[in-house]
Structure formats: structure tokens, C-alpha cells
């Protein structure tokens, strides 16, 4: 059974003008259907305003679809009785590192979720320790979150979700406000959880370099899924990506450029090492 299954998910909201009158509806999510299996690493890409974050909020029952359905672990999210089970099953990490840390100390923040789940005290401590170790933040457990870097704060947020023992973690543009170092830390932590703990990861982003590790990529534009496939399949379509306001990683772009100049290189080269291999093949001929 799929861990997450969305079918023709539609989300509309009513727009108001300056005087508070209704002035039309906006379809932020327009018929998205996708399946996530246990252990998947899914990337959802889209330009700003494409509806990708709105969609992500459906996976955690923060929003429920106007039309269509979202099932998480076999439970319909729009049934109010399922809300807390759904939220325990799919944890969520948001964009702004400052606006999602509740605790005054790192460990207290990680304990917040288990406390809400009524986990016994001894087990909370155990979970906090495990979770902080999994994201490499155990040494900071007694620190105030205010003293941490952006990347560290986001790792604490991931640990906070992890302590709730979810099957899936949705990361909603977790790196948008970070510097390159912080970005790397967060992606590395997410990948490790996927590899080691087999937790499904759904990464929402517009940074292409973060997508190459995913096993499935969905491109959302205007609330619709316009492309889906493996990173290789997606990144071979350089021009289509440009049309939806996205771009491929620079390596891929360079390989694409070389190919269009007549070099015999594979489609969608994703890493530097791959490109060098390909070029070595070319130069031997």
C-alpha cells in the first residue's frame, strides 16, 4: 500500500479585494495526483507561486482538499478524526528556521512533539537523544536555539519531527533562507534519514542541485503536475524547465550545451564526476 496517495487534489481559496468583497477564486492546487511509497525520496519543484507549498500542506492535514482526496497511511486527511494520526505519520519542516522552534533549549524543542503525543517522560528523553544524534545536533542539546546558525536550526526542526517517529517527513523549502553551507547540512541530514532509517522524504524546493538525490521528481506549475520522472528524465528536458521558470543544475546545462555542439554525451548528466567520465570517453575516440 502507498504511504501517501493523493487523487485529483484541488485547493481553491477565495480572493478578496481591498474592501473585503469576494473577487474570484484562485486555484492554488489543481488536480494533483501522486503516490509516495515507504522509503521514497521525492522532490517537488516549482517556481514561486506555483502552488507547491500549498500542496505540501495537504500532506499534513494543515489544509484539506476542496475536491479529490489525500490518503496518508491509508487514512483520509479530510476526516477530522484522522488529523492527529496523519500529523504523527507525516512530519513537516517549514521554511523559516526562526518561526518553528518553540522550545527555549534545543532539547526542549525536540521534546515538544512527543509531549503532545503523550509519550511517557523516560521515552521522551530517549527519543530526543536519538533524534538529535541522527541529525548531528546532540552536542548542542543544552544550547538556546537563538545561538545556532540557520542550518543548525533547521536540523533541530528535523529532529523535532523525527522524535514523533513519523514514516514520512515533508520539508517545505527548508533551505530557502540558508547560506550554501546550511543548505548542504540540511540536505545531508534529510538524505541520511532516508538512507538509514528508510523514512520517506518529500522535499519541496526550487534549488535544482538538491533534487539530484531524489528517486522521483514532480514539477508543479500553476497548481498542476507538468512533468514527473527520475531526475535524469526531468533534467534532460532543459527547455521545458525554462518555460516553467526553473533551470537545471549548471553541470547538466554544460553537458546539454556540449551535446548541442555535437559531442556524443549521455542525456542529463547530473554530477561533475559523470561529466568528466563522459568527456574522457569522448576524448579517447
Amino acid at each position: 500500500m502507498e504511504l501517501i496517495k493523493t487523487k485529483d487534489c484541488v485547493y481553491e481559496y477565495v480572493k478578496h479585494d481591498a474592501d473585503g468583497n469576494e473577487c474570484g477564486k484562485v486555484r492554488a492546487v489543481d488536480g494533483v495526483s501522486l503516490d509516495v511509497e515507504q522509503g521514497d525520496f521525492i522532490a517537488i519543484l516549482g517556481a514561486n507561486g506555483s502552488g507547491k507549498s500549498t500542496f505540501a500542506k495537504h500532506l499534513n492535514a494543515i489544509l484539506v482538499p476542496n475536491e479529490g482526496s489525500v490518503y496518508v497511511d491509508g487514512k483520509l486527511t479530510s476526516d477530522p478524526d484522522n488529523v492527529w494520526d496523519v500529523r504523527q505519520c507525516t512530519g513537516m519542516v517549514f521554511q523559516n528556521p526562526d518561526n518553528q522552534i518553540i522550545g527555549q533549549l534545543v532539547e526542549e524543542d525536540v521534546g515538544f512533539g512527543p509531549e503532545n503525543l503523550c509519550v511517557p517522560t523516560n521515552e521522551i528523553w530517549q527519543r530526543v537523544e536519538e533524534s538529535l544524534k541522527a541529525v548531528g545536533m546532540y552536542a548542542y542539546r543544552k544550547k538556546s536555539p537563538a545561538k545556532l546558525s540557520g542550518g543548525q536550526k533547521q536540523r533541530v526542526s528535523i529532529a523535532g519531527v523525527l522524535a514523533m517517529h513519523p514514516k514520512c517527513i515533508v520539508l517545505d523549502e527548508p533551505t530557502a533562507m540558508l547560506d550554501p553551507k546550511g543548505r548542504k547540512e540540511v540536505i545531508r541530514a534529510a538524505r541520511a534519514l532516508n538512507d538509514v532509517e528508510n523514512i520517506s522524504i518529500i522535499l519541496i524546493t526550487h534549488y535544482m542541485e538538491e533534487v539530484i538525490y531524489a528517486n522521483k521528481v514532480f514539477i508543479i506549475d500553476n497548481g498542476k503536475v507538468v512533468m514527473q520522472g527520475t531526475p535524469k528524465e526531468i533534467f534532460a528536458r532543459v527547455d521545458e524547465l525554462k518555460q516553467v521558470g526553473l533551470e537545471v543544475p549548471q553541470v547538466t546545462l554544460l553537458a546539454h550545451e556540449l551535446k548541442s555542439r555535437g559531442l556524443n554525451i549521455a542525456d542529463a548528466v547530473l554530477t561533475e564526476a559523470e561529466l568528466i567520465e563522459e568527456l574522457k570517453k569522448c576524448s579517447n575516440l
Partner: peptide, 8 residues
């Protein structure tokens, strides 16, 4: 450019 998408 913080937080903007590639086109932006």
C-alpha cells in the same frame, strides 16, 4: 536574491 526562484 534570497528566496527568489531562478527566473526571479
Amino acid at each position: 536574491t534570497a528566496g527568489l526562484d531562478p527566473e526571479g
